[in-house]
Nucleic acid binder design. Structure first.
Lengths: 146, 146
DNA sequence: TATTGTTATACTCTATAACTATA
DNA sequence: TATAGTTATAGAGTATAACAATA
């Protein structure tokens, strides 16, 4: 791996193919407990980043507030998050993960992410894992630039 | 970059986040000419791999034959691909890219892939491009293993 | 029996538009 | 005016089920 001439166009095209495939497979895979892909993304942002408002989460995930609202409504209905009115701003609600939500995330993580992790440890060398680990934050940065 | 202890679970979680973000951004981006994401994926497989049947393309893209059929019908309607009955097997049709299809792919590639390529060359170092280039085939392999 | 392709239907995820309430 | 959130509606991209034709 790693000669120096890299064609951005080619990298773009092959990234596009590979992430399309991978995301489709993850969507098809058995769910994490009963969490859909966007639900588990929102939940894990709340878990990692602490309580936040719906608008903040929508900005982080780069989707519309309405879409995030729909996702969050489902999570709240099942008791995985709770809403507290923000005392300093009457328009806002602060969302946080409930114990049941944390349990859904961590204990029942027997679905998609686990599947991915298993495939990674079974079929990839340590050197390849390093490449993927280093690539992940770059992909996230790329998503912010496109 | 690159100490040796890599936690597969952590890599899985961060890949999942980053590819989700990136694919959403690409879907939102202005289209390549007038090609949707699955259309351009199918077209570029036909272009790179030569004529193929619908079932073959569906397997390669890991989607159902019905979904691929819908995508291909749209491409054919606009004259970007053509269908020839397979002389050796009456059930099959062999698909190939027309000149108009090739033009739609290459000349009008001013949309998503171009946007991605521009972001890559403007905001990423050569070393980072190497990481991404090396990661792409690993992601594709991962999609086949999950 | 298995495979190729089609038609019909429905689900998930996301978007935009229009609205209310608060800042 | 601008922002947070809601409700309603629509579109893209998938899936599954049921079928006809061919192998």
């Amino acid at each position: 791996m790693g000669e120096e001439r890299v064609d951005a166009q080619e990298v773009a095209a092959s990234l596009r193919t590979s992430i399309g495939l991978l995301l489709r497979r993850m969507r098809q895979a058995p769910a994490d407990g009963d969490l859909t892909l966007p639900e588990s993304a929102a939940l894990s942002r709340l878990d990692r980043g602490g309580p936040a408002t719906a608008a903040e989460l929508a900005r982080q995930e780069q989707i519309s507030p309405q879409s995030m609202g729909a996702t969050l409504a489902g999570l709240q209905e099942r008791g995985y998050i709770e809403r507290q009115p923000d005392p300093t701003d009457g328009r806002r609600y602060v969302l946080s993960v409930t114990p049941a939500g944390a349990e859904a995330m961590h204990h029942r993580r027997s679905g998609r992410t686990r599947l991915l992790a298993d495939a990674l440890s079974e079929h990839f060398s340590p050197a390849e894992l390093v490449v993927l680990r280093d690539a992940a934050p770059l992909l996230e940065r790329l998503a912010g630039r496109v």
